[in-house]
Simulated scan of single mutants.
Amino acid sequence: MELEAPAAAGEAGLPLPAQAAAEELGFFEKLRTYLRAFPPSAAERAYQKRFAPLGLLAEQSPYATPSAELRDALLSGFKVGKERVENHTVHGGSPVQNGWNLTYHAFDYNLAHFGLGTLDDPQWVIQDRDAARLERAASARAGLWGNHGYEAAYAMTWTDGAGQALDGMRAYTLRFKVPPPVDGFWSVTMYNLPEYFLVANPIDRYSIGDRTSGLHYEPDGALTLHLRPDAPTAPEARANWLPTLTGAFRPILRMYQPRPEVFNGGFTLPPITPA
């Protein structure tokens, strides 16, 4: 069955889900509506047919007056699926180095479309399609969209170097003996939890990196970043301050146009250390 987009569309251009759908099943009604408007690639069509018994391929919404069996299946499946995605997001199969998850292959889930500048190379494609779908879900949860590692290598962490959860009430340092090796640029960006949003701070600084003006480097070229909720008193430390949140947080290190040593072990990410 070919899927066609519904005629009605909202202000953002997205099709409108059926308003009669039960509120607790709103996620599935949105998914049903968007699947019709934006069908998957040919490679994923067979996999999509597995969702038909859940009503996700139906022309009309089955979620206004669902059977008890369908309702219970959807809600219990949603709970299990959410837990699986959350667990993979934080504890996925990426290598860990000094507390950092080296998610250099987090965006290798695509198989069908390779646009301008994208390498159709087995090294950058997750061949296990079930693993790729889980990776895609986790990437959408925590990153929304990203580049392949050869364009931008991402590392993220929820803990310090000793494995303790990052706490916005504490002060931390991140000391690069040498800067991340890139031909583009690098940055560390601060996000809150559990939404993974940027949050306002007193100096309107949401990331810090080699494009940040006024950074203080040590005589040997080392750079110490200060991750903390309050401003450091020393001018050199204040210049290198990336404000944290008062609660849990998650920083991401981005390395654009990374050099080979990012992947071959020639560069080691330093740990985030309590000050």
Results as ranks from 00 to 15, higher is better:
Phe114Glu: 07
Glu2Ser: 14
Lys177Val: 02
Leu215Thr: 04
Asp204Gln: 10
Gly209Val: 06
Leu223Met: 11
Ile272Pro: 00
Ala239Trp: 01
Thr212Trp: 05
Phe185Lys: 09
Thr224Trp: 01
Glu261Met: 09
Gly117His: 08
Arg50Ser: 13
Tyr34Glu: 05
Thr268Pro: 00
Gly92Met: 00
Met255Ala: 12
Thr224Val: 04
Thr233Pro: 00
Gly13Phe: 11
Ala231Ser: 11
Ala153Gly: 08
Ala43Met: 05
Tyr256Glu: 08
Glu218Lys: 02
Val262Ile: 14
Asp128Pro: 13
Asn192Pro: 06
Ala21Ser: 13
Phe107Met: 11
Trp145Glu: 11
Arg205Leu: 06
Ala20Thr: 13
Ala5Ser: 15
Pro219His: 04
Ala142Phe: 11
Ile208Pro: 03
Phe28Thr: 03
His88Ser: 07
Pro251Lys: 07
Lys82Ile: 02
Tyr217Asp: 01
Pro271Val: 00
Pro202Asp: 10
Leu193Phe: 08
Met156Cys: 04
Phe78Ser: 13
Leu74Phe: 09
Pro180Glu: 01
Gly117Cys: 03
Leu134Glu: 10
Ser213Asn: 10
Leu56Ser: 01
Tyr63Pro: 03
Arg205Cys: 08
Glu29Gly: 06
Leu70Trp: 01
Gly55Asp: 00
Leu223Pro: 07
Leu16Thr: 15
Ser61Cys: 03
Gly81Asp: 06
Ala52Lys: 12
Pro271Ser: 00
Pro270Leu: 04
Arg84Glu: 13
Gly214Arg: 03
Asp230Leu: 08
Thr103Gly: 08
Glu261Cys: 05
Gly265Asn: 02
Phe51Gly: 01
Leu31Gly: 01
Glu151Leu: 09
Glu29Leu: 02
Gly143Trp: 12
Arg228Phe: 07
Pro39Val: 06
Met1Tyr: 12
Thr33Asn: 03
Tyr196Trp: 11
